Simulated assay, not measured.
Amino acid sequence: MLINSELSKKDIMKDPFLALGEAYMDNVIDFQGSIQKIIESVYKNKDSFLNKAHLFEKLYKITSHSIKKSKKDIEHHYDLGNDFYELWLDRTMSYSCAYFKNEEDSLYEAQLNKIEHILKKLNLRPGDRLLDIGCGWGELIITAAKKYGVKALGITLSNEQVKKVEERIEENSLQNQVEVRLIDYRELLDTGEKFDRIVSVGMLEHVGRKNIPTYIKDVSKLLEDGGVSLLHCITAQIESEPNQWIKKYIFPGGYIPSIRELAYNMGENNLHLIDLESLRLHYKRTLECWASNFENQLDEIKDMKDETFIRMWRLYLNACAASFHYGVIDVHQFLVTKGLNNDIPMTREHLYR
């Protein structure tokens, strides 16, 4: 670590997460070698601040998540421009944990694996109504419609994502099978629509701590009796607010729920947890691929973004990779049914055929 100018001891003592992040963004400090490995080395020290986030939780206010505020938070991160994300994501434009079946899988292959893994878990049938809450750039709903013959609705709060999904629906001639709407999941309840299958990948992290019970309850209301839902999200061991640097610069309004928090709310809403799988090391590798792609496209990114943004994004991708490798977060897929469903396969064998 290179220290280019004096760091405020007061800032470090008050909030080392924010102090470290802003110091790197402003080039007050710099790193030689792998940022990911440097941060991992701090995580390996059990007495480091990275392992004592609870000591700073009094600084972290629990933010409100009105529909208007949620839309603004999503726009902050996801409306940076499709051209920006296209530079370093894979061809599917999947911005969530991939699934590496083999060491030699490319990021693109791993993202296709992830989508197929999820669709197999959902046990789809032709004609099923599938809802994707936080549908991203649409790869999952388009694949589900083409391969499994479902009628799919994707919802998002990102204008840029809606634009891209609409283009892809038209390109694939799926206007009668796939739809995308700019709408909050809470607003969807007012339509009275019900779905046989509901999936959500990497969206729950934006719901907020206070809204976890609301989100789970609304999924239950939107799901037909006997319906199946898969929730794919980052998880924490215990409940705590994300650090201020992440909330200020990367994911305003973000919150990572604990497994027990989610399982409790599922039980309270007649959602039976039938499968739970950790993909932690898959996310570490996904983030390493994104960080590498980001650096390989730096000349093009410099034409779009300033140096402070580039340093911020570099730290975000590498710090997240370190967090999944040696840190305090995980990513899980929760598979639930509304009430009992005896048609779900009794083993996981079908997932690996």
Rank of each mutant, 00 (worst) to 15 (best):
K217W: 07
K210G: 10
V219N: 03
S173K: 15
N176G: 05
I234P: 02
V178W: 02
K284F: 14
L281I: 10
Q175Y: 12
I212N: 05
L287V: 07
S278N: 11
E241S: 11
E224T: 14
K217Q: 14
N176W: 11
D275S: 15
L204P: 02
N265I: 11
K221H: 13
L262S: 06
G253T: 07
Y185N: 00
R197W: 00
S220Q: 03
M266Q: 13
R280M: 08
M203F: 14
D275L: 08
P257H: 06
L188Y: 10
P252M: 02
L287P: 03
E268H: 11
K284P: 04
I274W: 10
K248V: 02
S220E: 02
G192S: 11
N176I: 10
L287C: 08
T286A: 12
Y264W: 12
Y283E: 06
M266S: 08
G267S: 13
L189V: 10
I198M: 08
I259R: 14
G192T: 09
R280F: 00
E205A: 08
T214W: 03
S220H: 05
I212T: 09
L287N: 02
V178S: 05
D225S: 15
V228L: 12
Y283M: 05
E288A: 04
V219E: 06
D190V: 04
Q177M: 13
E187G: 08
A263V: 15
I216F: 06
L271N: 08
M266P: 07
G226E: 07
Y283C: 07
A236M: 13
